[in-house]
Computed example of a mutant assay.
Amino acid sequence: MTDTTLPQPELRPDCPNFSSGPTAKFPGWSLDKLQTEVMGRSHRSALGKARLKYAIDLTREILGIPDDYLIGIVPASDTGAVELAMWNMLGARPVTVAAWESFGNVWIQDAVKQLKPANLTVLEADYGEIPDLTQIDKGDDVVFTWNGTTSGAKIPDTDWIAADREGVTINDATSAVFAQPMDWSKLDATTYSWQKVMGSEAGHGMLILSPRAIERIESYSPSWPLPKIFRVKKDGKLNRSIFEGATINTPSMLATEDYIASLEWAKSIGGLSELHARADRNAKIVHDWIEATPWMRNMVSDPAKWTNTGVCMVFQGDWYDGLSDDNKAAVPKNIAGMLDKMGIAYDFNGYRDAPPSLRIWCGSTVEEEDVRRLLPWIEWAFAQVKAELS
């Protein structure tokens, strides 16, 4: 039983930002690290296009994206990038959309209610689980989320994607890329947003296309109309200028410079391997703590599917199980609210559509010591909340 007289911890996290998006800025970030020469200039000027192209080139270098893949900056964050891929590519073949948390379900709704392609299969699983992906036919186009941002469940591998697949894969990687290895040979359209693992400013999405995806876009025209911000073809061919520093609409150059600064920081600390290692170390601290805490469990039952970014945890035990539904929801809400007011930790309550939970972002921009310092505060706050609700 938790001691309700648990003493208040002494050490506070230096950075209290544990949100799962936008995530914490990289260590040492400040506005004066951003280049400002392009501010007030057209994004179509030589300088503007050069800075956008530099962001694309750094992305390729750090992520190790194959040379024959194209990388574009597109509007409307990861949502815009996923929907651009879906609206341009789906409808040519049977489609399977797989989802196991909130954002994946958005792509299901796009397919079911908006695009309505023929031969549509929906694979769903509850929070913390992943559907049986091996049942997906290799002839299908597939839409899936690599890492469940709101559940903490990631795919453990890409063995279920056939090397000789006939369809294309559309991968929402926004809470996985830069923290988990991407199997580029199995990915045709990969998307993410700047404000997730790299902690940059929101608003823009990244779209990474394989040669197979390029061929699909150029050989197929969907039956539905495309909004302007989804149009990536010119004279029947992919408009490659979008992938060389031009953009479909006006980007924020301030946000672009912030993204560039985060990529330069990543390069300075050792690149992708160190980004992965930082997230792994942070997540291990939280996973080990959950396993050692009797009133807490990981939302994901299978350790092979545990994320190293947004770790989600739910409460358990006789005391918690005896609470009303409203009081069960109050436990994480009150813990997060209490530590927010104290300036200890911000924005780590579980996602609004998820089961009552806490979600600690462990991505690459978070410092290991800050994670260590947060956990005793959660224990202390839990003791206070338990006393209040008992």
Score class of each variant (00 low, 15 high):
Met182Leu: 15
Gln316Gly: 01
Pro13Gly: 00
Leu323Gln: 07
Leu63His: 01
Asp280Glu: 12
Glu368Asn: 14
Ser223Trp: 10
Glu101Trp: 05
Gly310Pro: 09
Pro156Lys: 15
Tyr127Asn: 07
Ala283Asn: 11
Ala55Asp: 05
Ala24Val: 05
Leu254Tyr: 15
Pro156Leu: 11
Thr121Phe: 06
Ser20Gln: 04
Leu209Trp: 04
Lys284Asp: 14
Thr247Cys: 14
Ser200Asp: 08
Gly128Tyr: 07
Glu264Gln: 13
Ala189Arg: 09
Ser77Met: 11
Asp302His: 01
Leu272Asn: 03
Pro355Phe: 00
Leu275Ile: 00
Val143Gly: 06
Ala345Asn: 06
Lys53His: 01
Ile217Glu: 06
Gly128Trp: 08
Val300Leu: 05
Ala24Trp: 02
Ser357Val: 08
Val97Met: 10
Leu123Ala: 04
Thr5Cys: 04
Glu274Ile: 10
His276Asn: 06
Asp78Gln: 14
Ser210Met: 11
Lys113Asp: 04
Glu368Trp: 05
Trp295Met: 06
Lys196Val: 04
Ile208Ser: 02
Asp164Lys: 05
Arg297His: 10
Val112Ser: 01
Thr169Tyr: 11
Thr307Tyr: 10
Gln180Ile: 15
Lys237Gln: 13
Trp29Pro: 00
Leu52Ile: 10
Lys25Val: 00
Asp353Met: 14
Gly317Trp: 03
Thr191Gly: 05
Met206Val: 13
Asp57Lys: 05
Pro332Ser: 06
Thr2Asn: 08
Arg44Phe: 04
Ala85Ile: 10
Gln316Val: 12
Trp265Gly: 00
Gly199Ser: 01
Ser219Gly: 02
Gly91Cys: 00
Gln114Met: 07
Met342Ile: 01
Thr250Met: 10
Tyr192Ser: 11
Ser151Pro: 14
Trp184Lys: 00
Ala354Asn: 12
Ala283His: 12
Ser241Ile: 04
Gly363Asp: 10
Arg41Glu: 08
Trp380Phe: 07
Ile71Gly: 00
Met39His: 06
Thr121Asn: 14
Ala381Trp: 13
Lys228Tyr: 11
Trp380Ala: 02
Ala55Leu: 13
Val331Gln: 08
Ser193Thr: 03
Ala173Tyr: 10
Ala345Tyr: 08
Thr169Lys: 09
Thr2Trp: 13
Gly337Asn: 10
Glu61Ile: 05
Gln109Leu: 01
Leu187Ser: 13
Arg359Asn: 12
Ala118Val: 00
Leu207Thr: 06
Gly64Phe: 01
Asn282Ala: 00
Trp380Asn: 01
Asp325Val: 13
Val371Leu: 12
Pro294Phe: 12
Pro22His: 05
Asp14Ala: 11
Asp280Met: 13
Ser30Cys: 15
Pro16Ile: 04
Thr23Asp: 02
Arg93Tyr: 04
Leu120Tyr: 00
Leu63Ile: 03
Arg281Glu: 13
Arg41His: 08
Lys328Ala: 11
Glu379Thr: 14
Gln180Phe: 13
Glu124Cys: 12
Ala81Asp: 07
Leu47Pro: 03
Ser30Leu: 11
Ser324Val: 06
Ile344Trp: 05
Gly205Lys: 03
Gln114Ile: 14
Pro225Asp: 15
Arg51Trp: 14
Ala277Gln: 02
Asp110Lys: 14
Asn249His: 06
Ala98Val: 05
Asp188Gly: 02
Gln384Tyr: 08
Asp325Asn: 09
Asn298Pro: 01
Gly245Ile: 05
Gly48Trp: 07
His276Cys: 03
Val74Trp: 09
Gly322Gln: 03
Pro303Gln: 03
Ser357Asp: 12
Gly139Ala: 11
Thr5Tyr: 07
Glu201Val: 08
Gly128Leu: 08
